[in-house]
Amino acid sequence: MASAAAVVQVISFVTVYSEFARKKDSDATDKLAVANSLFSMVGGTLAAVQGIAITSLSVAIDNYASASGKIKLAAKLGRITGVLSPFVYLFSTLAAGTSLYGEKGSAAKWTEALRSGNGAKLAGASMTLVGDSGQLAVNGWATARSVQYTYEALANVNQARALAWVTTGGKLLSVAARANLIGLVLTGLQLGGEWLYNRNNKTELDKWLQQGAWGKRNANRNMAEERLLLADITATPQMALQQVKSQSMAVLYLPGVTASELDEVGFGLSAYWLTNHQRNDWEAWSEPLLYQLTLLSAPDAPSN
């Protein structure tokens, strides 16, 4: 299972990095996605290597008749797990941390779902958040325990080094068993939450497709109605908070309209600042806003 998961994570990393390399303007979110995929791939690959080593050496130990041979292989198993375990859990901790935070992380999804008021969407986001938080805690604990037990084996001068590694190997296998069992449950939460969140996180375009002539919930609209609804969806101005060149900006999208066309029709923006929440007093803020506007697209390209 660990080997299959490692293969999937390698393929995922190649896909994510290829998309990142093709982007001309990458932001912090794109870099975080690459980092998350990299940490997951490294952690998964090391876990697969460790799993193969544990399985093969455990079988060899069972097949040995002499006690000295069993101790020698058990010590080898302890050294291998001592070297690999801290890195396995460290990279898994980093992967869980990068899944939790960021603009597209589970914490941001939970906040967005809470604002939307969609109960099913919030339930899915909550499951994913609990899963990611749990993975962060479990792998952090496993990292600390692995480092502790490995250090104790290296620093042990009162016991034969082989016996010290045998003892350490047993402790590390116990940590791995508990971390893997809890991790399996948390992975189920993550996958189930992601499925529930995506199922209920439908955009207006998704809803239009579902209710179209080719959708599962055909609304039996005529062609003129379909085209009008599609135009309303695709041409609706949108505003979002984004990181642009390491700066937080409120980005206004005007699909299908160029800056030159906006100038021709005398398009303008008015802004007001809430100065008193209790009295609901507002103050004109259009002029300060004017000096902070930045055109992110070319004059003859759709504006944002």
Rank of each mutant, 00 (worst) to 15 (best):
A6T: 07
V7A: 05
S12Q: 05
T15H: 06
Y17C: 09
F20A: 08
K23F: 07
K23P: 05
D25F: 13
D25P: 11
D25W: 08
S26N: 10
D27G: 14
A28H: 06
K31Y: 08
V34F: 00
V34P: 07
A35D: 12
S37V: 09
L38V: 14
G43V: 05
T45Q: 09
A48E: 09
V49H: 03
I54D: 10
S56N: 13
S56P: 00
A67Y: 06
K70Y: 05
A74W: 02
A74R: 07
G78W: 00
G78T: 02
I80L: 03
I80V: 06
G82W: 00
G82Q: 02
S85D: 05
S85G: 02
P86N: 02
F87A: 14
A96T: 00
G102V: 05
K104V: 03
K104G: 01
K104A: 05
G105L: 06
G105P: 08
K109Y: 07
T111V: 11
L114V: 07
R115G: 15
S116F: 03
K121G: 08
K121D: 04
G124V: 11
M127C: 12
S133G: 12
Q148M: 12
T150D: 03
E152I: 13
A155Q: 13
V157H: 13
R161G: 11
A162I: 12
A164S: 09
T168G: 00
L172W: 02
S174Y: 06
R178Q: 14
R178H: 10
L181T: 06
I182T: 08
G188R: 04
Q190W: 02
L191S: 12
L191Q: 12
G192A: 01
E194V: 13
W195R: 12
W195F: 11
N198I: 05
D206F: 02
K207E: 01
K207M: 04
K207D: 04
Q210W: 10
G212I: 04
A213T: 08
W214H: 10
G215H: 06
K216A: 15
A224G: 03
L228M: 13
L228R: 14
L229K: 11
A231E: 08
D232R: 15
D232C: 12
D232G: 12
T234P: 01
P237K: 02
P237E: 01
A240C: 06
Q243P: 10
K245R: 05
S246E: 15
Q247M: 07
S248G: 07
L252V: 02
V257G: 01
V257Q: 08
E261T: 07
L262T: 02
V265Y: 04
G268K: 13
Y272E: 14
L274T: 04
L274F: 04
N276A: 12
H277Q: 15
R279Y: 13
E283W: 00
A284F: 07
W285M: 07
S286V: 05
L290R: 14
L293S: 03
T294E: 11
T294R: 08
A298V: 00
S303V: 07
